[in-house]
Amino acid sequence: MSSAPAPHQPSRFQSQFAQLLPGLLLSGAVAGSALWLDTQGWLSSFGLSSLTLAIVLGILVGNTFYTRLAPTAQPGVTFSKGALLRLGIILYGLRLTIQQILGVGLGGLLADLLMLSSTFFLAFWLGTRWLRLDAQTAILIGAGSSICGAAAVMATEPIVKAQAEKVAVAVATVVIFGTIGIFLYPQMDAWHWWPFSGLHFGVYIGSTVHEVAQVVAAGRAISPQVADAAVTVKLLRVILLAPFLMLLSYFWGRSEPRRTDQRGAQKGSAEKVKLSIPWFAFAFIGVALFNSLHLLPVRLLHNLITLDTLLLSMAMAALGLTTHFGAIRQAGAKPLLLGAVLMVWLVGAGGLVQGFLMSVGL
Score class of each variant (00 low, 15 high):
343 M>A: 15
179 T>R: 00
131 L>A: 07
45 S>N: 09
3 S>P: 14
106 L>H: 03
9 Q>V: 13
280 F>I: 13
118 S>K: 11
4 A>D: 10
146 S>I: 01
51 L>T: 01
22 P>Y: 00
110 L>E: 03
315 A>D: 01
278 P>L: 04
78 T>Y: 14
28 G>F: 05
163 Q>E: 12
330 Q>W: 13
91 L>H: 10
149 G>A: 05
122 L>K: 11
75 P>C: 08
85 L>P: 05
41 G>E: 03
301 L>D: 10
46 F>V: 11
126 L>W: 01
236 L>K: 11
225 Q>D: 12
41 G>W: 04
273 V>S: 13
302 H>T: 09
54 A>Y: 00
34 A>M: 06
88 G>N: 04
99 Q>S: 14
283 A>S: 13
207 S>C: 13
26 L>S: 02
344 V>C: 04
207 S>W: 05
42 W>P: 08
248 L>A: 06
217 A>H: 03
119 T>K: 03
67 T>M: 13
62 G>W: 00
18 A>Q: 08
231 V>F: 02
191 W>R: 11
337 L>D: 02
308 D>R: 09
336 L>H: 05
136 Q>C: 09
190 A>W: 09
294 H>D: 13
186 P>I: 03
89 I>W: 01
96 L>N: 05
99 Q>P: 15
300 L>P: 03
258 R>C: 11
227 A>N: 11
185 Y>D: 02
315 A>M: 08
60 L>T: 12
182 I>L: 00
147 I>S: 04
83 A>L: 12
132 R>Q: 10
151 A>C: 08
102 L>P: 02
